[in-house]
Design a protein around this nucleic acid. Structure first.
Length: 565
RNA sequence: UGGGGCGUCGUCAAGCGGUAAGACACAGGAUUUUGGUUCCUGCAUUCGGAGGUUCGAAUCCUCCCGCCCCAGCCA
C-alpha cells in the first residue's frame, strides 16, 4: 500500500509536467487549481479532479488553489460553497489562504474586456439569443457575421459601459469576441464574453448586472493566479483554442490547459444535473443520501477519505472515456476498514435461540478480539446467556449442499462462545415460520474450542437476548440496477433503472452491549455482515442508527447465486 | 456530411521501435473460531481492422472501422 502511494502510476499529465520542468517552461513551478462552480454538491468525479490537482501540487512541492467559478448568479448558492469547502477539507486537502472566487476578478475581467474592445477584438451585439444561434451556423455550415460586428471601437466602448451601468435589459445585448464566424470550431465563432443578468450575486450583490462567460473568465482567472497547468475535463478540449486566444490577445501570463477524461462509475450517474433531479424529485433524501455518488453521500455511507483517495489513485488518469467498475471502490473501502474497523457482533434479522441445558440466570463474560488484523486494538468482554439471537439466515431446516450453518441436529460454533447443537425447531402454527430454536451446548467448548478436537464447519455471530441493544440498520445497495443507466435503450429514462431495493431499513436489529455509547460517525465491522457507520444525524442518545457502508465479500452468496442460475 | 478527441484482458490502466506492467473482477487451491482476512496459481502469442516501413511495430506511415464531445446569453 505504501509502496503504491510512494510511486504513483505514470500518466500523461505527469509526463507533461515532467517535461515542462525539464525545459523550464514555468521556471520549474507547478501550480494547479480546483475550480468548481457552486451550483451543486461535489461527487466522486470531482474527487478525482481534486486528488489530481491537489495531489500533483503536493507531489511537486507546490500548491493548489480552491477557486469558485461563480460567474452565473442564477444557478449558484452559498449552501453549495459551504458544502464544497467542507468536502474538499474532508477529503484531506488544504488550500490554506488561497480561497479564491472568479467574482473577485470581475473588475479585472471588465478591464480586459475593455482592452479587447479598444483593440477592435470585441464588439457589442444587439442580436437576440435566437438570432445569434441562427447566425452561428451549424456543425457543417459556416456562420455569418452579425450586422453589428462592424461597430466602431467608440460605439462598442460606449455601449459596453452602458451595459455595465444597467441601461439595458436582460438579453438585449451581449459582448462578443471578434474572431471568426466561419471557423470549423464553433467556439471560435465570435463567442459571447458578457451577458446582461439583472441578478443578485451571492458575493457581489447588486454591484454587477453583466457577468462574464466561462471561457472569458476562466483563462484570465488562471492567469491572474499564475496557474501553470490548468487541468479540466475532455469536453473543454474544443475550448482550448479560445482559452489561448484570449490570453494571447490580452498578452497575459499563459497557463497550459490540459484535458483528461472525467470519471464514470458503474451503477450510478455522475452529472450534477441528474443528481439534482434525483434530489428534487425525492428519489433520494438529499445530496448526502448514502445512495448518492456525492462526496457527502459517501461520507454518510461510511466511506473514509483515505479509501476515496486511494481509489482515485488506482483508477488512473487518461483521455479515453471509461466506466470504472464500482467493485474497485468497494474493494478500496473494504481494504481500508478491514485494517481499521473494530469488530462487533450484530444480528440484523434476529432468530431466538434457547440453550436448554444452559443454567437459567447464568451470565458469562466471554473474551472477544476487537480486530484480528491489529492486535493493538485489544479485546473486550461479551455476555453469554441462555437466550440468544442468531441471524435468521444462519438457520436452515432443510439445508442445501455446502450449507455449513445451523440445521436440525447439526452442531456449529457461536463465535467466542460455545458449540451448540440444534435440538428442536419451534414454528408458528399458522404460518409455518420458524420462530425459535432450542439448542444444547457443550460446556467444554467455552471460547469456541473443543477439547476433543472435533471440528464444526460453521461459526455464527450472535448476541445475548437480555443484554443486546436495539438498533436500526439501513442496508444500502447500488442506486441503479444496471451498470450504465445512461444507456437509455428503448427510450427509457435513466430513472427507470433506479434500484427500488437500494435502501432497506431494518428496525429490529440487535447489537452487542459494548456498542452502548459509541461515537457518532464511528465505523465497525459487524462480523460476517459488513462494515457499518454510526449515522451522525439520525443517531442520538439511546438510539443507534447504522448505515451499511459495504458488505463483506461473500463467497457463500456467490455459491447460492450460482446454483440459482 | 465540419471540427476536436479516443480505441491495449470482463473493467480500469502502464507501455513512447527491442519482443504485452499492475489493479479490480473472475476461476481454482492452501490457511482460518468472520463462507472475512491472508497466501499461492491461472487469466491478452496479442494491442479496433487491413496494408506498409523495419532485422524487429501496441509503439512509425497509409487507408478503413468504431466510440465520445461541440450548434447555452451553462460551466
Amino acid at each position: 500500500m505504501f509502496a503504491k502511494e510512494s510511486t504513483p502510476p505514470s500518466n500523461f499529465i505527469r509526463t507533461i509536467i515532467e517535461e515542462d520542468i525539464k525545459t523550464n517552461k514555468y521556471n520549474g513551478r507547478v501550480v494547479t487549481r480546483f475550480p468548481p462552480e457552486p451550483n451543486g454538491y461535489l461527487h466522486i468525479g470531482h474527487a478525482k479532479s481534486i486528488c489530481l490537482n491537489f495531489g500533483l501540487a503536493a507531489e511537486y512541492g507546490s500548491h493548489c488553489n480552491l477557486r469558485f467559478d461563480d460567474t452565473n448568479p442564477s444557478k449558484e448558492e452559498i449552501e453549495y460553497i459551504e458544502s464544497i469547502k467542507s468536502d474538499v477539507r474532508w477529503l484531506g486537502f488544504d488550500w490554506e489562504d488561497r480561497l479564491y472566487y472568479a467574482s473577485d476578478y470581475f473588475e479585472k475581467l471588465y478591464e480586459c474586456a475593455v482592452q479587447l474592445i479598444k483593440k477592435g477584438k470585441a464588439y457589442v451585439d444587439d442580436l437576440s439569443a435566437e438570432e445569434i444561434r441562427e447566425y452561428r451556423g451549424t456543425l457543417t455550415q459556416p456562420g455569418k457575421d452579425s450586422p453589428y460586428r462592424g461597430r466602431s471601437v467608440e460605439e462598442n466602448f460606449d455601449l459596453f459601459q452602458r451595459m455595465r451601468a444597467g441601461e439595458f435589459k436582460d438579453g438585449s445585448r451581449v459582448l462578443r469576441a471578434k474572431i471568426d464566424m466561419v471557423s470549423a470550431n464553433l467556439n471560435m465563432r465570435d463567442p459571447v464574453m458578457y451577458r446582461i443578468l439583472q441578478a443578485t450575486h451571492h458575493r457581489t450583490g447588486d454591484k454587477w448586472c453583466i457577468y462574464p462567460m466561462y471561457d472569458f473568465a476562466h483563462c484570465i482567472s488562471d492567469s491572474i493566479e499564475k496557474i501553470t497547468h490548468s487541468i479540466c475535463t475532455l469536453e473543454f478540449e474544443d475550448h482550448r483554442p479560445l482559452y489561448d486566444w484570449f490570453l494571447n490577445e490580452l498578452n497575459l501570463y499563459h497557463p497550459q490547459q490540459i484535458e483528461f477524461a472525467r470519471l464514470n462509475l458503474s451503477y450510478t450517474v455522475m452529472s450534477k444535473r441528474k443528481l439534482l433531479e434525483l434530489v428534487k424529485e425525492g428519489h433520494v433524501s438529499g445530496w448526502d443520501d448514502p445512495r448518492m455518488p456525492t462526496i457527502s453521500g459517501f461520507r454518510r455511507r461510511g466511506y473514509t477519505p483515505e479509501s476515496i483517495r486511494n481509489f482515485c489513485e488506482r483508477i488512473g488518469v487518461a483521455k479515453r472515456d471509461s466506466i470504472v467498475d464500482v467493485a474497485l471502490l468497494e474493494h478500496c473501502i473494504r481494504e481500508d476498514l478491514n485494517k481499521r474497523a473494530p469488530r462487533a457482533m450484530a444480528v440484523l434479522r434476529p432468530l431466538k435461540v434457547v440453550i436448554d441445558n444452559y443454567p437459567e440466570n447464568q451470565v458469562e463474560e466471554l473474551e472477544a478480539i476487537n480486530n484480528p488484523e491489529d492486535p493493538n486494538m485489544g479485546s473486550r468482554k461479551i455476555p453469554f446467556s441462555r437466550v440468544l439471537y442468531i441471524e435468521e439466515e444462519d438457520f436452515c431446516e432443510a439445508p442445501p449442499k455446502k450449507f455449513f450453518r445451523l440445521a436440525p441436529g447439526r452442531e456449529v460454533r457461536l463465535r467466542y462462545g460455545y458449540y451448540i447443537k440444534c435440538e428442536k425447531v419451534v414454528k408458528d402454527e399458522k404460518t409455518g415460520q420458524v420462530v425459535e430454536l432450542h439448542c444444547s451446548y457443550d460446556p467444554r467448548t467455552k471460547g469456541g474450542w473443543s477439547p476433543d478436537g472435533r471440528k464444526v464447519k460453521g461459526t455464527l455471530h450472535w448476541v445475548s437476548a437480555d443484554h443486546s441493544l436495539d438498533a436500526q440498520v439501513r442496508l444500502y445497495e447500488r442506486l441503479f440496477v444496471t451498470a450504465n443507466p445512461l444507456d437509455e435503450k428503448q427510450g427509457l429514462d435513466f430513472k427507470s433503472y433506479l434500484n427500488p431495493n437500494a435502501l432497506q431499513t431494518l428496525t429490529s436489529c440487535k447489537v452487542e452491549p459494548s456498542l452502548k455509547n459509541i461515537a457518532l460517525g464511528s465505523r465497525y465491522q459487524f462480523e460476517r455482515l459488513g462494515y457499518f457507520y454510526v449515522d451522525p444525524i439520525d443517531s442520538s442518545e439511546g438510539k443507534l442508527v447504522f448505515n451499511r457502508t459495504v458488505t463483506l465479500r461473500d463467497s457463500w452468496a456467490k455459491i447460492v447465486r450460482k446454483s440459482e442460475n
